[in-house]
């Protein structure tokens, strides 16, 4: 078990190294990626700010709460963009052009190689922006030391949940002629998840909380941080993560069984 963990850590270190070396040969792309993320951060904060110039609260949340919520989203999104996103885009190519074949004959978990192999070197550097925003607004909200200790773990947990959901969705590419549309579906779900859950009407909120639990990703941790009495949401989130892992392992087996591999 321990040696396996060490094996994967060493392998992952090699992934990181390879991706950074590769990114350095495309300097302009590297810079553009950073600009893209910055524009995205700016547009999200600006939207929320403009709305709060006209109202005091949205639902029960005031400006600081929503701003913290947005910063939390961006920190998780930053991890997702750096560590996972490229792999989803590449999966459709891997399947269509048969590059997946090589990952399948390697003596490592194919799930690991398929979804963690590509790291976006440019994005990794930007973690400072969302984290400083999170600290700034957390401070304004008067977070206790409990909240600060627990915060990094909540970011990781949210990252895990979003990763699980998106990976499960991406598996659909195994049954499609063209996988790009699935990536758009993924982005639409991100779009929906990026707002407080109370803005959605009852029935849709239930589906997006219990069935495809995208609303839990950012809402559960934020609500828990605002008020520790709201611990039930965290139970929901933890079970969603657990179920997600089970579903993913089962589904991945199904994918590999039906993988036909491009003929040339």
């Amino acid at each position: 078990m321990l040696s396996r963990t060490k094996y994967y850590l060493l392998l992952y270190r090699e992934f990181i190294k390879t991706c950074f070396v590769e990114a350095m040969s495309f300097r302009l792309h590297f810079v553009l990626l950073i600009i893209m993320d910055l524009v995205f951060y700016a547009s999200v904060f600006a939207s929320v700010d403009i709305i709060y110039q006209h109202v005091e609260t949205i639902g029960t949340w005031n400006r600081e709460q929503l701003m913290f919520f947005v910063s939390f989203i961006l920190s998780v999104n930053h991890l997702q963009m750096s560590l996972l996103a490229n792999n989803y885009w590449e999966l459709s190519l891997l399947i269509r052009q048969g590059g997946l074949d090589f990952l399948l004959v390697k003596p490592a978990s194919s799930l690991f190689s398929t979804f963690l192999r590509r790291i976006s070197a440019g994005s990794t550097l930007l973690f400072l922006v969302p984290w400083s925003c999170m600290i700034y607004f957390g401070n304004k909200l008067g977070f206790t030391w409990h909240a600060w200790v627990i915060l990094p773990f909540l970011v990781l947990l949210a990252f895990m949940l979003t990763g699980l959901i998106e990976t499960i969705i991406s598996c659909a590419m195994f049954w499609m002629l063209e996988g790009v549309g699935i990536n758009f579906l993924r982005m639409q779900l991100q779009q929906v998840a990026r707002w407080p859950d109370f803005i959605y009407a009852g029935f849709i909120r239930k589906i997006l909380t219990f069935f495809i639990p995208v609303l839990l990703i950012y809402n559960a941790p934020s609500r828990f941080l605002f008020d520790f009495h709201d611990w039930l949401v965290m139970v929901g989130m933890l079970s969603a993560v657990a179920i997600g892992w089970v579903v993913l392992f089962f589904l991945w087996k199904l994918c590999l069984n039906s993988y036909e591999s491009a003929s040339s």
């Binding site: 094996y7 060493l10 392998l11 270190r13 090699e14 992934f15 190294k17 390879t18 070396v21 590769e22 040969s25 495309f26 052009q97 048969g98 590059g99 074949d101 090589f102 004959v105 390697k106 003596p107 490592a108 040339s264």
Partner: peptide
């Protein structure tokens, strides 16, 4: 497995980098 029509090497890197990755694998 060697496939004449596909490559397992990273296209934009020297082969040695791909080898080091394989060393870990």
């Amino acid at each position: 497995l060697v496939m004449g029509q596909k490559s397992q090497l990273w296209w934009d890197l020297p082969a040695m980098d791909s080898f080091q990755l394989l060393q870990r694998y």
